[in-house]
Design a protein around this nucleic acid. Sequence first.
RNA 1: GGAGGGAUGGCAGAGUCUGGUUUAAUGCGGCGGUCUUGAAAACCGUUGUCCUUCACGGGACCGGGGGUUCGAAUCCCUCUCCCUCCGCCA
Length: 421
Amino acid sequence: MLSIPYIRKNLEEVKAGLERKNVVVNLERLLKLDDKRRQLKTETDKLRSKQNKASKEIGAAPAEKKQAKIKEMKSVSDDLKSGLAELEKTENKVKEMLITIPNPAHKTVPKGKKDTDSVVIRTEGKKPVFGFKPKDHVELGKTLDLMDVERAAKVSGSRFVYLKNELALLEYALVQYAFNKLKSKGFTPVVPPVLVKGMAMYGTGFLPADESQIYKTEHDDLYLVGTSEVSIAGYHADEILNEDELPKRYAGFSTCFRREAGTYGKDMGGMFRVHQFDKVEMFSFAKPDESYQEHDFILSIEEEIMKDMGLHYNVVNICGCDLGVSAAKKYDLDVYLPGQDAFRELTSTSNTTDYQARRLNIRMRTEKENVNVHTVNGTAIALGRMLIALMENGQQKDGSIKIPGVLHKYAGFEKIGPKSS
RNA sequence: GGAGGGAUGGCAGAGUCUGGUUUAAUGCGGCGGUCUUGAAAACCGUUGUCCUUCACGGGACCGGGGGUUCGAAUCCCUCUCCCUCCGCCA
């Protein structure tokens, strides 16, 4: 959510940032509506002031004068009531407009109309060389008995998967590796709730924009999170943080649920795009003037993890049209998957500036005034997709899969061999 | 699931029965100061958030929402959360 005083002061800049996202909003109409709101506020405040004064007089007045005074105040009370009703109506209209306006894109975000307009800013690692035709994760998963998609379909439907054997163990090795690394970098490890109230969804900007992507429970008005970003952002809702405790960093492990509406036929089979996966997420509450620095920091950790895993990847500056509502800027790391012979998104990090913090009412105490903090999120490890990358990139000629050295101590094995029996 | 109790500022806690000088008492904590070689103690001062106004000022907020009233922390309705006991349960 944007602040109206900010829009008032920086109208052209806000418009340019929205245009970068290919979004057109009638901001003049919004400001006009807010003018009306302020006028009504002044009027009703005056009536209230009158009422407060009279109320004291009535309390102190002798009994015979009381009735006349009360009669006189009746009309003021009526005026106030109708004024308040109109004020509320106008306030709601303003809020309604405001809640749908996305966060304007930063000026370093590429303009564009399609996802191909995003810009690869650098490529790291080496493309793996195989002396044979590499298999994709679906085949590897089947021959090594690591995944079962068919039975998942029987039990849950399409886009679900059972992880089995070493792959199930490897997931937990990755989680431990990630928690340890992030703890050493100042992140507080967290396992948050995955069912949340509407407040958290609206606060993070997933509602109302992405309603079709979100699972909602039938009887309890709770939503299943698509990322632990939602529950972690909401953790400090309605709080005022001290300046010297920022940045506050959290590493959240959670299962993530996504409906994937409108993706029929895309990435079918296997577990690249599934309704349910686990993820370790980084999340920072940062001082406003440090959020881009924090964004770079989180990107650097994502890259460190990719390097630990020995993966070949692109760093992509995502174009305006592909930014979510709340992001002002976003980098993806696209990793080379031999099975597809393509770079695919494995992690993503966004600076949402004060957009979520304003909606969630998260502030920072400064000497002058309290200001909204900035929030930055980034994937540490999307477990399903990381497992795909490790399987496809680690596969050997004999059909086994070598796993990265940093994971050996957590996994308790160094490779996933063909079943001997 | 059943029965009862509760929600007031950073924290503790009065005010609710009986609506009106309550700009929410008091204590603790925090911050500043006096005193002190320094500290503690003591004493003095200060200490919420938001909206509105160029400013002076005005207004709102006692868990959320609604109602009664000239006027609600206080009365009524409703929802949420917390606590105690019973039942069930990984």
